[in-house]
């Protein structure tokens, strides 16, 4: 084994790979099970975008809070939410992260710094400002982080949050996960200012664009932004350009995409393959080590699905609880 050339220890590289693989297999499995009609409701999959969530979240701890969006499974897993509880939640079971009351679009675990996936696009940005404000006022060095797609970056809430964070100098980072499509609508058409760095500059914030399929590019850039925010350097914007392997939601025929686009991207822009190539070429991790993780992850997802299927359903009593702390 040669010297590790990467800015992460071997153990951390293994953790990062395991997280990315867990997200991938979680989503691939949901895709299949949704197709079989086993999952209720709306499901938006993160597959293809793993390097962004994991490259960023490797820098965060439980005190750092993230506000996610409808495509939140990857953020949840990378932020440490329990995978089995997530699966049970998506199946609507009482053992789920949210006791079956939230579902795919509302998974949260504040104790892990996951303020919630969110069905209202752009709504997370003000909440992340609140997390940054709390860190600032309570005097700990946590940060708030808002995850927005290219679509929701057109929401007033997002733009207002950029301004608020700038004037209050909040430790908040706005991540724009630009996968090129707002549901079915192209970012090239729907975003009038064509660069998110320009858009950030319009609010007086520094912005950075990175290749979101390159784990190490995301990791390094996010590390600098996060360090800056923790040290009082204020808010910034990180655009990760990435690829959405699936449609907007499950059941989307994706006819708006180019012919062969998904196949090409899976072949050439798969962040997991790219990561594997880097670490094995450098001789830091072996294919055997990574394959072993693959096997463990598949077993975890299988177990999560099995447990979710056999878990108890909520009862009528659950309908009216958890509305208020007291009423």
């Amino acid at each position: 084994m040669s010297k590790n050339p990467f800015p992460l220890s071997k153990d951390d590289l293994l953790i990062a790979y395991r997280m990315m693989k867990t997200i991938r297999e979680f989503e691939e499995r949901l895709h299949v099970d949704f197709g079989r009609g086993e999952i209720p409701g709306f499901v938006h999959l993160y597959a293809g975008e793993e390097a962004s969530a994991v490259g960023i979240m490797m820098h965060l701890n439980d005190q750092d809070q993230i506000a996610s969006n409808h495509r939140g499974h990857g953020h949840c897993i990378a932020k440490g939410v329990d995978v089995k509880e997530m699966m049970a939640e998506i199946y609507g079971k009482v053992s789920g992260s949210c006791r079956g009351k939230g579902g795919s679009m509302h998974i949260a675990d504040l104790s892990k710094g996951m303020m919630g996936a969110n069905g209202i696009l752009g709504a997370g940005s003000p909440l992340a400002c609140g997390a940054g404000l709390a860190a600032q006022k309570l005097g700990h060095n946590g940060i708030g982080m808002s995850f927005t797609g290219d679509g929701a970056s057109n929401q007033g809430t997002f733009l207002e949050s950029l301004n608020l964070a700038a004037v209050w100098n909040l430790p908040v980072i706005f991540v724009v996960e630009n996968n090129g499509y707002a549901e079915s609508t192209s970012v090239d058409w729907a975003v009038a200012v064509d660069s998110y760095v320009d858009r950030a500059a319009g609010f007086g914030l520094p912005g950075v664009t990175v290749d979101g399929t390159e784990f190490f590019a995301v990791y390094e850039a996010a590390g600098e932004l996060i360090k800056r925010a923790r040290e009082g350097g204020g808010p910034s914007l990180l655009e990760c350009k990435m690829i959405r392997f699936f449609g907007h939601f499950e059941g989307d025929a994706q006819t708006y995409k180019a012919e062969g686009e998904n196949e090409y991207n899976r072949k050439h822009h798969d962040c997991l393959k790219i990561f594997r190539a880097h670490v094995t070429k450098a001789g830091v991790l072996s294919d055997e080590e990574l394959d072993a993780i693959d096997t463990q992850v598949l077993a975890l997802i299988d177990a999560a699905v099995e447990e979710a299927i056999s878990a108890p359903l909520p009862t009528a009593d659950d309908l009216t609880t958890d509305v208020y702390v007291s009423y």
Binding site: S195, A201, P206, E224
Partner: peptide, 21 residues
Amino acid sequence: NPVSARDIRRIVAHAGNLQVT
């Protein structure tokens, strides 16, 4: 080139960004 001046130097330095317009 529309994508130059978008990198990490906006954070680690005080690099500018020539806007698309």
